[in-house]
């Protein structure tokens, strides 16, 4: 199976988010970047599938040169090679067109992504790529098993899950517990240095959205502490002050 895994390069989940230049630019100072946690699940499952049935895993990122350490980490985790589409990922449709173009060129059997990026939170790129390539797309997938070319998967729905059957090729947006995150070992890290990371140019495309500026949520007020022996007070406050009961 030839697998393509699309990864994002996003701030660590513990990062403090802030903006600069009059709230028009994300402030990267002091921010650690990681593989998107959902993409990391997709990658872990891809490596497991390769280990079980053979084939290859290619990772793809649409991003500028600063994303390369993140891509190398994916190679250390077990991907065989990587593609970086050299462009700033400004819009979901723009990103989807890049992925669709290079996915078609590589004729992959299976395209795995995360259910959503944790910076943009669009939950859209996998569906767009599926439509662009004329392939089914399923998300969020929490279990993915194969019997030859036929997949059996669980998709999470509100309050439960549904089981689907589908044959290759298709696109899936992944989430836990599809696999456990993999931590690169020393051998992986060494070999990642020499694995191919091909930088390719972006294909012509127009984005359909544009960000005009950022805002922060209003600061939270002080917490009001209530004595553990006086919980009636809590219920009163919730009813009369917060008005949520």
């Amino acid at each position: 199976m030839k697998i393509l895994v699309c990864i994002t390069h996003v701030p660590d989940t513990t990062s403090k988010i802030s903006f600069k230049d009059n709230n028009t630019q994300f402030d990267t100072s002091g921010v650690q970047f990681i593989i998107g946690p959902y993409d990391d699940y997709a990658l872990a499952r891809a490596v497991e599938l390769k280990d079980a049935t053979g084939g290859s895993v290619t990772v793809l990122n649409v991003g500028e040169a600063t994303t390369e350490p993140t891509i190398r980490k994916a190679l250390a985790i077990g991907a065989d090679d990587a593609i970086r589409v050299n462009a700033e990922p400004t819009d979901a449709f723009f990103v989807a067109q890049q992925i669709a173009h290079y996915a078609k060129e590589g004729a992959y059997d299976l395209i795995l992504m995360g259910r959503e990026s944790i910076d943009y939170n669009g939950g859209a790129v996998h569906g767009m790529v599926g439509e662009l390539l004329g392939m089914p797309s399923v998300s969020p997938v929490m279990k993915l098993e194969f019997d030859g070319n036929n997949a059996k998967m669980d998709r999470e729905i509100e309050g439960g899950k549904e089981t689907l059957e589908l044959s290759l090729p298709f696109v899936a947006g992944c989430q836990e517990p599809i696999a456990e995150w993999k931590i690169p070992n020393m051998r992986g890290i060494m070999s990642a240095r020499t694995k191919p990371l091909n930088v390719v140019e972006a294909v012509d495309s127009n984005g359909k959205t544009k960000v005009n500026g950022y805002e922060m949520p209003p600061a939270k007020g002080e917490v009001k502490m209530i004595d553990a022996d006086n919980v009636e007070e809590l219920v009163k406050l919730l009813k009369n002050e917060a008005k949520v009961l």
């Binding site: 939950g123 859209a124 599926g130 998300s139």
Partner: peptide
Amino acid sequence: TSSLGNPVAARLAVKIDASLATN
């Protein structure tokens, strides 16, 4: 925005050439 709404909207956006905003 839902586990069905988002994947449907994403495909539809490409199908009808629309601009999409979720969340």
